[in-house]
Design a protein around this nucleic acid. Structure first.
Lengths: 197, 197
DNA sequence: TAGGCAAGCAAGTGGTTACTTGCATGCCGC
DNA sequence: GCGGCATGCAAGTAACCACTTGCTTGCCTA
């Protein structure tokens, strides 16, 4: 790992702890085990470094996929949502910072939006396939349904360390229960499917 | 409004914009139209002022209620959730800051938790009354269901200015659709109720 | 082996921050 | 009318910040 990568990693970590105001060039350089001057020689300014670090994160975001042909919606959605939830949870501190700094640095929130856009697309496609196949139905709009599921996962992953008493202790268990509720909401449960036509 | 209240209001506003690191005593005093020294004479330190301001907010939180006897769940839940959503939305900047500073200042997040605890209690009570009356049912736990509904509202209210394309343009309309989906999820829709036993 | 380049190091600059001190001013109750 | 009390004002302090400069060191390549 060369100096540039070390700085980017250190910047991400320090930024996660204190946001862009709390992330001092001294601490970043220290954590990267690099001279502070080297930081400026590479990136020019603190803001440029943080921006590069967030960009690096956006590039490396892994694209979760949902099967083209839904076969077992409960299992498939649960696995997908668990992975997404884990992704948010692992970066919860950083995500909170980017959202808090939305007014001052909209690019940060743009990164978050970019990363989750693929998740949303995947979910919407899957849902519409379910509905087209007659395996889900009712009077709901796809965008609203995905907003509900993704919002639930987001709030859980971002809030469960602030308010642990409010969420099921096991994240995996919680996600499974959310998916169960969600499937009923969109009429994709065997029983509810029967009545939705 | 005396000097103390002016300072508290100004502190809340400046804190909403920049968090505790971005909130300088100079800007707070300026906005309160008060000398900066007066700020320190009243509160001793910046942190004490911010803490007092958040405490003031927690005290004045209005307690939303759901009817003791559910009669029209869709209408009642929609009204309740709209009010809650509006409350989050109006304070979204401040809420984002307190959550971002959770690691450094857990008291801030504690205030948010305290304020929403009443909402959760109300919702859980209402849901259990619905279920006891046989007007909702299925294999879900109350805590999970409320986490889902509140999480959806939270994510929408906090995220719709960062990612406007992801949410229905009208907040009231969005909440109505969330409630509709939620009622189906907990088996409180006429049709789905029939099959839940 | 010579030259260039990346990095370290020490020191400094100008700006901002929270907080303090000392003193002047005006208002309100007695 | 007078004493106390809340506030304003000017100035200062010590710390921290992003960022710069000038110089040295060591490694790789030609």
């Amino acid at each position: 790992m060369d100096v540039r990568d070390q700085l980017i990693h250190a910047a991400l970590q320090v930024y996660s702890q204190g946001g862009s105001r709390g992330a001092t060039t001294r601490r970043i350089a220290e954590l990267a085990a690099v001279n502070e001057v080297t930081l400026f020689r590479h990136f020019g300014s603190k803001d440029a470094l943080i921006s590069a670090a967030l960009g690096w994160l956006a590039e490396r975001a892994l694209a979760l996929r949902l099967p083209e042909q839904p076969s077992n919606p409960r299992a498939e959605l649960t696995a997908f949502c668990r992975a997404h939830h884990r992704g948010i949870y692992e970066n919860r501190a950083l995500i909170r910072k980017t959202m808090a700094e939305f007014e001052e640095h909209p690019e940060g929130a743009a990164v978050a939006r970019e990363i989750t856009a693929g998740i949303e697309r995947e979910l919407q496609g899957y849902l519409s396939r379910l509905r087209r196949a007659g395996r889900a139905g009712g009077r709901w709009r796809i965008g609203t349904a995905t907003a509900m599921l993704m919002g639930t996962l987001f709030a859980d992953a971002v809030g469960r360390d602030c308010m642990p008493e409010r969420y099921p202790a096991s994240a995996d268990q919680a996600v499974a229960e959310y998916v169960e509720l969600f499937l009923r909401a969109v009429g994709a449960t065997p029983a509810s499917r029967a009545i939705s036509r």
